[in-house]
Design a protein around this nucleic acid. Sequence first.
DNA 1: CGTGTTTGACCGGCGC
DNA 2: GCGCCGGTCAAACACG
Length: 286
Amino acid sequence: MDYSSWVDTSLDLNISSIRVKSEAPVDAGRSGMAKELKPTFMDFQTKPSSKEETGALVEELNRVGEENRKLTEMLTVICESYNALRGQLMDYMSKNGEKDRLAPSKKRKSESSHNNNNNIAMNGNSESSSTDEESSKKPREEIIKDKISKAYVRTEAGDTSLTVKDGYQWRKYGQKVTRDNPCPRAYFKCSFAPSCPVKKKVQRSIDDQSVLVATYEGRAQSSSSVNGGNTSNDDKSSKPRTDTPEVQKFLVEQMASSLTKDPNFTAALVAAISGRMFQQNNSEKW
DNA sequence: CGTGTTTGACCGGCGC
DNA sequence: GCGCCGGTCAAACACG
């Protein structure tokens, strides 16, 4: 999936002060970043007084703080957009789910009945799939509460691991070869909190083995854990409390954490900031 | 040494 | 009741 096509990665950050020291003209058409940064570097060669230095550091601190604040705001917006998009997707899936439910299933009786129960209980929210083979031995009330959704993740060729990077922490507790798929199925528990009931199953698609099918089960308990791994199991009747500031903050922190750990994101961020600096330098000059 | 993974054993539901 | 099957447990192991 190409996320770059979804999100405009150009950052409107407050980085203008970075270029304050760079007064030397730069040939934007021909010079690269190394050339461009050279005047800034040279300026640091001249020794400022300690007062000036402190002022510069304070200014830098303020600038970084402002960047941090803007990034946080951006993440909040992204989070909200994500939730809105997910809602639309769920609506769409629920419409399609109606059709799927009418189709007869070759699965075992308990599984098909269970799926129907879930579809009803979840307002058609589960990602309906003819290959859905969820089985549950949970008490009735848990079945009603639990949500099941699927995610399809394409992996690189040669990647034999059953790891789906979804930004959450999982602990593998089992692996099993199932009857209808020669590829082993891995079982994960949410490791965010010991009491978190969310589980995940990951198995390669029997049709396309480069695709991992991740099945999310259950939902985080609202009291004991804020949101450990409930990635997409909410529905209209029981939306996650993303509207509370605490959860908003937690979600933002989670996303920031997972993003900053991603080298691709940091590289993109650096590129975006560099590009922005480059642009602003040019626009100031011209 | 703490944490996460692996893997065989075990358990419970279901069909026959 | 028995066997099959999916799911879970927990001891052993690997790793940083």
